[in-house]
């Protein structure tokens, strides 16, 4: 059933990480990614790993959720691993089959690449798991607001994101309903060749699009009725405010980057 699809994987909680300002979390994520790409040695990877592990522990998000989220990425991970495993040139040949050889360098490189992607994705998950979508859009809007000066529609973009997030569950439910109704009229989505299957989607997509346009139209009217006139002169109920723990987190993140840089300087 489509209803079982989990969307917006926010896990509400009260941990320090949950309470951080979304801007802090976004900036630290950027710093974390930079550190991850600067890391070159076992030791520096270890430092970044410890930072991530401690953050996850503080957040109280069960590890299981991270593994679950990782599932759709399995293919990419496997692909990256195998590619690096077979196509890295090296001295120490471990296995030689016909013209393909697996080298020690290849094994190490494959491990690092997969590890790096895993860390990258896990870090991003930690952000989305601990930050409500609305806080995330607010944070993004605030961080990007200097770009308004160069006429980038920052408010409009974040409003659109917000509305999209709001309507995803509604449209998923609607798709489910339309599918059931067309199935009840004998529509068959499961058999036939590709062309037939694509054709079978028409009875779902047409009503879905019509409904989405109708909703958009009604929503626009409702928003106008509530005096919406774009971002100018708008205030916010929840102001983003930095607290002590935000500054503390910045300090930790700065330490992380410095540590990785210093280690890199020493060639580690």
């Amino acid at each position: 059933m489509l209803k079982d699809v989990t969307l917006g994987q926010f896990f509400p909680g009260k941990s320090v990480i949950h309470r951080l300002d979304p801007r802090t979390k976004l900036l630290i994520l950027v710093g974390y990614i930079v550190a991850l790409f600067l890391a070159v040695s076992w030791l520096s990877y270890g430092v970044v790993f410890v930072f991530l592990a401690v953050s996850i522990a503080i957040s109280g998000i069960p590890l299981k959720s991270f593994f679950k989220g990782m599932k759709p990425l399995m293919f990419i991970l496997l692909f990256t691993g195998i590619l690096n495993l077979f196509f890295t040139q090296g001295e120490t040949v471990l296995v030689q089959i016909w013209t393909i050889s697996i080298t020690l360098e290849g094994v190490i490189r494959a491990f690092f690449m997969v590890f790096r992607i895993l860390m990258l994705v896990t870090g991003t998950f930690l952000l989305t798991y601990t930050t409500s979508p609305i806080a995330l859009t607010d944070g993004l809007e605030a961080l990007l607001s200097p770009l308004k000066k160069i006429k980038l529609p920052v408010h409009e973009l974040s409003m659109m994101m917000c509305i999209a997030l709001r309507f995803i569950p509604t449209l998923v439910e609607e798709t489910d309903k339309i599918m059931s109704a067309q199935k009840a009229r004998g529509a068959d989505f499961e058999s036939g060749n590709l062309v037939q299957r694509v054709k079978a989607l028409v009875p779902i997509l047409v009503p879905l699009f019509i409904s989405a346009f109708r909703r958009a139209d009604e929503l626009a009217t409702a928003m106008e009725c509530r005096c919406y006139q774009g971002g100018d002169g708008r205030t916010k109920m929840k102001l983003l405010r930095m607290h002590g723990c935000d500054y503390g987190s910045f300090l930790v993140a700065a330490l992380l980057i410095t540590a990785v840089c210093v280690l890199r300087g020493f060639g580690l």
Binding site: K183, A184, P207
Partner: peptide
Amino acid sequence: RQTRFRVGLVFQYPEYQLF
């Protein structure tokens, strides 16, 4: 499959399924 045809189902607001 035969049951789908022998038992007709009209959902709520069926007009939203016209295509």
